[in-house]
Computed example of a mutant assay.
Amino acid sequence: MNNDHINAHPLAIEVDNLECRYDERTVLRDVTFNVKRGEIFFVIGGSGCGKSTLLRHMIGLHTPAAGTVKFEGKDFTWADARERKALLRTFGVLYQSGALWSSMTLAENVSLPIELFTELTKKEREAIVRLKLAQVGLAGYEDYFPSEISGGMKKRAGLARALALDPSIVFFDEPSAGLDPITSLQLDELVLQIRETLGTTIVIVSHELASIYGIADRIIMLDRKTKGIIAEGDPRVLRDTSPDERVKDFLNRRGEPAGQKEERHA
């Protein structure tokens, strides 16, 4: 694993006493956890527990009511505009739908953050775009529009854009949503490949057990009623030993093809 681009701070992410609120409605409170460098870390839980809300507050789309988020030891939540812009370059985000601009080609989509955050020439940007699309298996698709490719390819293109600035951290919001099991497995394998080749820290919001058992190093589980974290650790260990029935029920759902993938990746 190549960790050259990651600084010496031992933790990639530190979330401390985060409170997430919409108007007067508190969704999450007192949320505290850390993510280690190079870790594949999942945020899991049932519908409405606040998984995507937590993600949006972590990446700055919403301001927390209280608490802090630090990236590589630096406060992101309450940073000034200059510091925040610098920290935005350290992470990428793959949104649930891919969030590609339909009127732009894949190359133009991937080029957007490079144009926004760097002063590279057009030729230099084009070289990076080709490299990033190749990294996700989309070499030769530079001039395609999002409407001309499959759902799985859109996710890959979105991932290429998230990787455009060589971030040390990448966030995924329900990456398997809308994908068939084979395509979902291929995306999981791509996540593993990116972590191994680039040393990237990965944070994934998901409820898919196949992916959780297949690639997660560690998880936190959120709960809608308590509005916080009710479990943290290795999902395989929690599945078998957690004293909390809510955790065991979630991690032992029937009908999920978790066993084969666990054996493949564990």
Rank of each mutant, 00 (worst) to 15 (best):
L163I: 12
L163S: 10
L163M: 15
L163T: 04
L165N: 11
L165K: 02
D166I: 01
P167T: 10
S168N: 01
S168P: 00
S168T: 11
I169L: 04
V170L: 04
F172W: 04
F172S: 13
F172I: 00
D173V: 03
E174W: 12
P175H: 04
S176I: 00
S176N: 14
D180S: 04
D180R: 03
D180L: 06
P181T: 07
I182M: 07
I182F: 12
I182N: 06
I182P: 02
T183C: 06
S184L: 06
S184D: 14
L185E: 10
Q186G: 09
Q186S: 10
L187H: 14
L187W: 15
D188W: 10
E189R: 15
E189P: 10
E189Y: 05
L192E: 13
I194R: 13
I194T: 10
I194S: 13
R195S: 07
R195T: 11
E196K: 09
E196L: 06
E196F: 00
E196T: 03
E196D: 13
T197D: 15
T197L: 13
T197V: 05
L198G: 01
G199A: 07
G199D: 10
G199E: 07
T201C: 08
V205G: 08
V205I: 15
V205T: 10
V205C: 06
S206C: 03
H207T: 03
E208G: 02
L209T: 11
L209P: 14
A210L: 03
A210F: 09
Y213F: 15
Y213W: 07
I215M: 04
I215S: 11
I215Y: 08
A216F: 11
D217K: 01
I219Q: 02
I219K: 05
I220W: 12
I220F: 13
M221S: 11
D223R: 00
D223H: 11
K225N: 09
T226H: 12
T226Y: 04
K227E: 15
